[in-house]
């Protein structure tokens, strides 16, 4: 492989770095998507197998269908809020705080749901059946997404307040964060749809 010695700048342009970061985040989203897919596959696999009628025992409890959707709502609002804000930068200051607050509320709600599960067997310290196990797992993934989303939203809110979110590179970063928030909303909706099918 022959080379020539044309001189180029040693520092990449913000657009180049921005596109690079966007691709990296999209690949991480692919990995996260594969993880969410594995959980949804497991949910329907166990539900359809219903081994020993153990998916949902006769006197078993479930989360209400609406609770899954209620917990997806903060993600949806946060995605809309952030993506709206990064397109209209003058309102980013307020909207970044809205994004953070909404996700923080969602985080508390998700924690509260997992702390008050109706299907724990107090005397055995375990779960009622496979549905209960899957619902806990999906809720745990949602909780992790809330933690990550809240971290990113807090960073954006602080940086916007400090005036750090200016310049071409930061514009790209906000756009990339928008991809992440949109993915969080999609995955939460996918989990909500999944848990809407509780009974066999």
């Amino acid at each position: 492989m022959s080379t020539s010695t044309e001189h180029v700048m040693h520092h990449d342009a913000p657009e180049v770095v921005g596109r690079r970061e966007r691709l990296g985040v999209r690949l991480i989203i692919v990995a996260d998507g594969a993880f969410i897919f594995a959980m949804i596959f497991s949910y329907f696999y166990l539900r359809n197998l219903n081994v020993n009628n153990g998916w949902l025992p006769a006197d078993g409890h479930t989360f209400t269908v609406s609770s899954g959707w209620l917990l997806a709502l903060p993600f949806i609002i946060a995605a809309i809020s952030h993506n709206f804000g990064q397109k209209r930068r003058e309102s980013m200051g307020v909207l970044s705080i809205v994004t953070f607050v909404v996700l923080a509320i969602g985080l508390v709600m998700q924690w509260s749901q997992l702390s008050n599960m109706p299907f724990m067997l107090a005397e055995e310290g375990g779960f009622e059946g496979a549905y209960a196990s899957m619902a806990f797992f999906l809720g745990g993934a949602n909780l992790l997404h809330y933690v990550l989303g809240t971290f990113v939203a807090l960073g954006i809110a602080i940086r916007t307040k400090r005036g750090s979110s200016t310049g071409t590179h930061e514009t790209w970063r906000l756009r990339t964060a928008g991809s992440w928030f949109t993915w969080l909303a999609i995955s939460a909706v996918a989990c909500a749809i999944t848990t809407s099918f509780a009974a066999v």
């Binding site: 197998l49 020993n52 009628n53 949902l56 310290g125 375990g126 496979a130 209960a132 196990s133 797992f137």
Partner: peptide, 21 residues
């Protein structure tokens, strides 16, 4: 660690699920 039943057939779990994943 917390008593779920993903792979315990008595409570609706399945060893096949593990094999697939």
């Amino acid at each position: 660690t917390i008593g779920t039943h993903f792979y315990d057939a008595e409570f609706g779990g399945s060893g096949w699920l593990y094999a697939h994943l």
